[in-house]
Amino acid sequence: MDKAVVDRPEVSVVYVASDDTRTLRRMLTNVKELATSLEVIVVSPKCVDTSYLGDESSWIDKIVSPSIYSYDEGRALGARHARGETVLFLDERVDFSLPLWQQYVDAVRNGADVAVTVRTQTSTSAKKKKPLPTRYAYRLLNHLLGHTELGTGTLSRIPFACSRKALKALGHECLRTPPIAYVKAAWQKLVVVGVHPDSAIKWTDDTRISMVKSTRQLLREHAYAIQLLVNLIGPRGGMPDGDRYRDLLHIPGELHLRSVFYPQPREDKGGVWGGKRKKKQTGSHKKR
């Protein structure tokens, strides 16, 4: 696989790593069969050794950026350089097999713009555990976006995949704040689907903890995303204002509030405001 020969690879894999070469080695061993034309972009805050690959490292781009402080920033930088029609995002924290990776690639090939992971708690011990605050945030954002079927699906956790169209619409910088990118994807009516892993995803603790965002930061990002969604929808949740005449509230004078409730001409009200009610009372008095 020579990246100079293939101008537009079928799949780009963006892999963010700190210094965990062992996990990187397993990933590169399995990813070769993912597509006929493939590029791998390894993003790291410091140089990651790939010399053990020999000549095969020609299809691997290494991006070293000391300014990377989180995995999301690394993915945004990798997305900027990705050329594939489908971009799969991974990092050193997760280790799983090629068939699972293929589900994300196939989802994009079948028409999805974004494919996120939908995790379900199947074991009894997992169900007894109190859900983390971030899981509530993921569910709330999906509920507000009308994606309740996606549960805790999110761009804040890997793995996920995007099409070339989605990255062009969202912009790679947007991936620095995944909830913002998630809201923009839904607002632009991009097709977002969930991938249900057949087996539990294995996570490794041999990672750079400093690159993992704190719970407080994740919740703050979701608050910003909800604020963005509210601003996009507009006042009254995007619903019409009915027959209200709110512009009349800005009219100076003592009767402007009555004008809101009684916008009809004065002659319909018996000549004065409230005249209709007085006339009715007068009529009832005459009957007696």
Results as ranks from 00 to 15, higher is better:
residue 10 E to F: 15
residue 11 V to M: 12
residue 13 V to H: 11
residue 18 S to P: 00
residue 19 D to K: 04
residue 26 R to C: 11
residue 30 N to Y: 14
residue 31 V to Q: 02
residue 34 L to E: 07
residue 34 L to C: 07
residue 34 L to W: 10
residue 41 I to C: 06
residue 51 S to I: 05
residue 52 Y to I: 03
residue 56 E to R: 09
residue 61 D to L: 08
residue 63 I to Y: 07
residue 63 I to L: 11
residue 70 S to Q: 01
residue 77 L to D: 02
residue 79 A to S: 01
residue 81 H to P: 00
residue 83 R to A: 09
residue 86 T to V: 14
residue 91 D to V: 04
residue 101 W to C: 10
residue 110 N to R: 12
residue 111 G to I: 09
residue 112 A to I: 12
residue 123 S to Q: 09
residue 130 K to R: 15
residue 135 R to S: 13
residue 137 A to F: 06
residue 137 A to S: 07
residue 137 A to K: 07
residue 140 L to Y: 00
residue 140 L to A: 04
residue 142 N to C: 03
residue 143 H to A: 14
residue 145 L to S: 02
residue 151 G to A: 05
residue 154 T to P: 00
residue 155 L to D: 04
residue 164 R to I: 14
residue 164 R to Y: 15
residue 168 K to Y: 11
residue 169 A to P: 02
residue 170 L to Y: 05
residue 173 E to Q: 06
residue 177 T to L: 09
residue 185 A to P: 01
residue 186 A to W: 03
residue 190 L to A: 06
residue 192 V to P: 03
residue 192 V to S: 00
residue 193 V to P: 00
residue 203 W to Q: 03
residue 212 V to E: 03
residue 212 V to F: 14
residue 216 R to H: 10
residue 217 Q to A: 05
residue 217 Q to G: 01
residue 217 Q to T: 04
residue 221 E to K: 05
residue 226 I to F: 12
residue 230 V to L: 12
residue 236 R to H: 07
residue 241 D to Y: 12
residue 242 G to K: 07
residue 243 D to G: 04
residue 244 R to K: 13
residue 250 H to Q: 11
residue 253 G to V: 05
residue 260 V to Y: 06
residue 260 V to C: 06
residue 263 P to T: 13
residue 263 P to H: 13
residue 264 Q to E: 05
residue 277 R to S: 06
residue 281 Q to R: 12
